[in-house]
């Protein structure tokens, strides 16, 4: 037995902190979260760990205005499916943006945020959220 959430979160830390998924070397498909089997190649598939670059664009989104207690402090907040540049999608919050400025196709990058807390005395879960790409002074393309 473990305290609520502890082991459940701990075993996913690499995926949640760094967007570590995997890639099927046979067909070249990237997976996030990591898959135990390539659904296309199945036994012919060869899965290797892959850390995503954390860049992508918004595929679809919503602004959540009724949420469970864990999220009340953040309401209204934006959730989206982000299509990563490697070609797979994930579900995530979009932060550092005004909800009315979000649109399909918007470029975003991964950032590091608190995902949830197991109450006042429980563990804190960290992981990826996404934000609009930021201005970098002096950056040359």
């Amino acid at each position: 037995m473990a305290e609520q959430g502890v082991a459940q979160v701990w075993r996913r830390i690499r995926a949640m902190y760094r967007i570590e998924g995997n890639k099927c070397e046979t067909c070249g498909t990237h997976f996030f979260p990591p898959r135990p089997v390539c659904p296309e190649c199945r036994r012919k598939g060869k899965l290797e760990n892959y850390t995503f670059k954390g860049l992508g664009s918004i595929y679809t989104f919503s602004i959540v205005r009724q949420a469970p207690d864990d999220f009340k402090r953040q309401m209204p907040y934006v959730v989206a499916q982000v299509e990563l540049d490697e070609g797979t999608r994930l579900t995530t919050q979009i932060v550092n943006v005004d909800p009315e400025d979000v649109e399909i196709g918007m470029r975003v990058r991964a950032c590091f945020r608190k995902i949830k807390e197991f109450g006042h005395s429980g563990i804190i879960v960290y992981g990826y959220k996404f934000e609009p790409v930021m201005k970098v002074t002096g950056h040359k393309q």
Binding site: Q74, Q93, V95, F112, R113, K114, I115, I124, Y126, K129
Partner: peptide, 12 residues
């Protein structure tokens, strides 16, 4: 932000 703390700021 409501989802930021010393851990998230440090990581960024």
């Amino acid at each position: 932000g409501p989802d930021e703390d010393v851990a998230t700021i440090s990581v960024e």
